[in-house]
Write a protein that binds this DNA or RNA. Structure first.
Length: 803
RNA sequence: GCCGGUAUGGCGGAAUAGGCAGACGCAAGGGACUUAAAAUCCCUCGGAGUAAAAUCCGUACCGGUUCAAGUCCGGUUACCGGCACCA
């Protein structure tokens, strides 16, 4: 029979489904294994060939674990709330739910055609009220524990669309859709206090097995810095507190800068002589978009506060105060002490405004020419009692001194900011909060969850930037759950990140109406053993879900402090031209075409063979042919099978080595070399002219995680075992059979390969050396020379250094 | 600017912990089979050099350590990703 993937693949997909062999067992005595991929956002474009890279990789792991006797949970679901669906709905006047259902159906068909061993009985969807009931429940717990709060926040506002934009929708300072100017507008927003967990989110990275680059990126994002707060007194008798990581340079502070939004300006407006000028500057700063404020401003701007000065607490010197937008209200205290000699930004500003530059750390170039910022090498000068100390010593000493004086304290700061949790959008989870004129902000009772998303006429945001939900008055108007008075509902919805911050918990018990998941299910299944996903989620999704998980751990809902024991990341699949795959570049490859032309097995093999799993690799419509050939060659083994159950002695070593190699490579993400090893073995098998039944059984099992359909076909055609190969047993290898008896070692003279000799594997140095010297060629090369050194690397190489 | 990643044949890539650079696959060239083509099978395939060998060069670039460097150390460049005045 000729290999025909269209005959084979749908048949086995159906048989697997009917037999339910990929269902995770709920009450099992087996050890558990929880493999997880990032659940997809069901977009209208459908899957592209990038998606299956991650799904296939963990499918291979999941299938191998099943064969190793684990009870495996490998689930799938839909992260279905979000903007593209909503925008599509607005444009085409359809309900986002319909769009979602249609897209989910498309994705499902595509995923099923790839033969991935998901447990479809546990499928979840973040837009299902039965699911988002628990997203809302978690929000209520966060609220009750003071971790959800409202704050006036600047948002992106499109002046033409009259609507709030997400950061992703602002491109180069203009609206992505209409191209008009985006400004900052202050609105009251729900925030989540992720900053309370900053320290633990860093520290607990020690508990998990993540790639170092992921850990580093999370640490940098959280941005912990240690320093001190210093209280300056002003000539008006007020206190102005600054945060600095360089308290050692306090004697070099020659001015101060406060951010344009700093409250001290309003407080002292009657004292400041040039208030008009200050007002103008503040206004200009507030009008600037984030883009202008960070991107365009290369030259420092600012205005001096006329009529006030600050007093340096350590030397009593009076120094001027400026406002400037290079100081951010959102970090530290919104005010800084400026040490131009040792900070580049302060130096730029001081040069522009002609301010004095005093060197307090010696060891660099002339500070009048450039700031000296290296704190590892310098020695303190011009700093009274700090003189002669190293920077580190000076930091410690001055912090102690300030603490004694009551003028300062050690302080840790984080770049991480609280999570803006409100969206003025329709297609998201409604925030379960009611505003009552008497009781204030009241959480909805848990018994009233889920708070379902009502139907609306149109999904467009309102003119004043409120969510479309605000237009549905009979939904908005409600009674206060506490006192029964007339009240209104919160109309903001949650961001897309909400549903994905806990979805892996729901998979453990997806149909539970009493809890987000039962405690037994969570105790059994969590943490996730292996989570693979994209690097682009490192600082958002991965961090957000760790935060939620830690909170749920604190309130004793989940049993583990960390959600994922092991995290890995795959590289992108690029277009054939080496560029990122995108619709606009026209280089998108649709998996449907590949499955149709070559079959799912070939597709899966190629996805894994294409290159180093962790690096990006370009798609190649030529190279895939090699994987198709391998699939056919594997299938054609049927025709050369003999009935012996054993492994032929001449192939025994090769089989054991391959079992070892494939077993190990799957664990270390080296799927490409695992497949290469299978290809090498099949070449050896064909060279031998036949394959025994016993050999084919092993080979088929090894292939089955990669190319499961054809493996099942061969398994059943040749009656290699009972039932499915997917329910059989992973082959084991014998370490002693992986070593060869004879081995070729390389003989070098002065580091250059001159000869290769065959030796018994356990030969000692003397034996190998005399064999090497017995070679005519080597003899002629070292004859008459002085042998300086002889190196023997067992089983590998001899190097004779001769002069 | 800062942080992270990457750099190996015509191409994707391989090389445990410093020990034969180029496994495996693709493409290309030659041959067998065929009326022919496809498929399949066999051979060649980094560069220079040679009748063939020998030999020399070669893992982005410059330098170092070592008997031995794609791998370790110091420096440089290019590309990709993230962040962007974080005091």
């Amino acid at each position: 029979m000729k290999y025909d993937h269209k005959q084979i693949e749908p048949v086995w997909q159906k048989k697997w489904e009917e037999a339910g062999i990929f269902h995770a067992e709920s009450n099992s005595a087996k050890p558990k294994y929880y493999a997880l991929i990032e659940f997809p956002y069901p977009s209208g474009q459908g899957l592209h060939v990038g998606h299956p890279r991650s799904y296939t990789a963990l499918d291979i792991v999941a299938r191998k674990r099943r064969l190793q006797g684990y009870n495996v949970l490998y689930p799938i679901g839909w992260d279905a709330f979000g903007l593209p669906t909503e925008n599509f709905a607005i444009k085409n006047h359809v309900h986002p739910r319909e769009v979602t259902n249609k897209n989910v159906a498309g994705f499902k068909r595509q995923l099923k055609s790839l033969g991935i061993s998901f447990d479809w009985s546990r499928e979840i969807n973040t837009t299902d009220p039965k699911y988002y009931k628990w997203t809302q429940w978690i929000f209520l717990q966060l609220f009750k524990h003071g971790l959800a709060y409202k704050k006036e926040m600047a948002v992106n506002w499109c002046t033409s669309c009259k609507c709030v934009l997400a950061n992703e929708e602002v491109v180069n300072g203009v609206c992505e859709r209409c191209g008009s100017e985006v400004i900052r507008k202050v609105q009251s927003q729900w925030m989540l206090k992720i900053t309370d967990y900053a320290e633990r989110l860093i520290k607990d990275l020690d508990l998990v097995d993540y790639p170092e680059r992921v850990k580093t990126q999370q640490k940098n994002w959280i941005g912990r810095s240690t320093g001190a707060e210093v209280d300056f007194t002003t000539t008006t008798g007020d206190t102005l507190t600054v945060y600095t990581t360089r308290p050692d340079t306090l004697f070099g502070a020659t001015y101060m800068v406060v951010s344009p939004e700093h409250p001290i300006i309003d407080k002292l407006s009657s004292v400041i002589k040039n208030m008009d000028e200050i007002r103008l500057y503040r206004e200009a700063a507030s009008r600037k978009s984030d883009f202008e404020r960070t991107e365009v401003v290369k030259e420092k701007t600012g205005v001096r506060l006329d009529g006030i000065e600050a007093v340096n607490p350590v030397n009593g010197k009076q120094i001027p105060i400026f406002i400037s937008d290079y100081v951010l209200m959102s970090y530290g205290t919104g005010a800084i002490m400026a040490v131009p000699a040792h900070d580049t930004r302060d130096w730029d500003f001081a040069k522009k405004f002609g301010l004095p530059i005093i060197e307090v750390v010696k060891g660099g170039e002339d500070v009048q020419k450039a700031a000296f910022t290296d704190c590892a090498t310098g020695v303190l000068v011009n700093s009274d009692y700090l003189d002669g100390l190293s920077v580190e010593e000076a930091k410690r000493k001055i912090t102690e001194k300030l603490t004694e004086m009551g003028k300062g304290r050690a302080k840790v700061n984080y770049k991480l900011r609280d999570w803006v949790f409100s969206r003025q959008r329709y297609w998201g989870e409604p925030i379960p909060i009611v505003y009552c004129p008497c009781c204030g902000t009241v959480p909805l009772p848990e018994s009233e969850l889920p708070l379902e998303l009502p139907d609306v006429e149109s999904y467009e945001p309102t003119d004043n930037g409120k969510s479309p939900l605000a237009k549905i008055t009979d939904w908005v108007n409600t009674k206060c759950p506490k006192c029964g008075a007339d009240a209104v509902r919160e109309t903001d919805t949650m961001p897309q990140w909400a549903g994905s911050s806990w979805y892996f918990l729901r998979y453990t018990d997806p149909h539970n109406d009493e809890a987000l998941a039962s405690r037994e299910a969570l105790d059994y299944w969590t943490p996730v053993d292996w989570y693979n996903g994209g690097m682009e989620h490192t600082t958002l999704h991965l961090l957000y879900s760790r935060f939620w998980h830690k909170f749920l751990y604190d309130i004793k809902v989940v049993p583990t402090p960390e959600p994922y024991a092991k995290r890995t990341s795959h590289g992108m699949i690029l277009g054939e031209n080496g560029e990122k795959m995108s619709k606009s570049r026209g280089n998108v490859v649709n998996p449907d075409e590949i499955v149709n032309e070559y079959g799912a097995d070939t597709m899966r093999l190629f996805e894994m063979f294409i290159g180093d799993f962790e690096n990006s690799a370009p798609w190649s419509s030529n190279s895939i042919k090699g994987c198709r050939r391998f699939t056919e060659r594997f299938y054609n083994l049927e025709s050369i099978m003999t009935d012996e159950e054993f492994i032929r002695p001449e192939l025994e070593n090769k089989f054991h080595k391959t079992i070892k190699k494939v077993s190990e490579d799957i664990e270390t993400l080296k799927f490409n070399t695992a497949i290469a090893a299978l290809m090498t073995l099949i070449n050896d098998i064909y060279a031998s002219g036949s394959i025994t039944k016993g050999e084919l059984k092993i080979f088929t099992t090894l292939v089955s995680p990669f190319a499961p359909h054809v493996a099942e076909q061969v398994w059943s055609d040749k009656k290699l075992g009972d039932g499915f190969v997917s329910k059989s047993e992973w082959p084991s290898y014998d370490e002693s059979k992986c070593v060869d008896e004879q081995t070729e070692i390389v003989v070098q003279v002065n580091g250059k390969v001159k000869e290769k000799i065959n030796v018994p594997v356990d030969i000692d140095k003397d034996g190998a050396m005399s064999l090497a010297k017995g070679s005519e060629k080597i003899k002629s090369l070292i004859d008459g020379k002085n042998i300086v050194k002889e190196i023997y690397v067992p089983g590998k190489l001899i190097n004779i250094v001769a002069k």
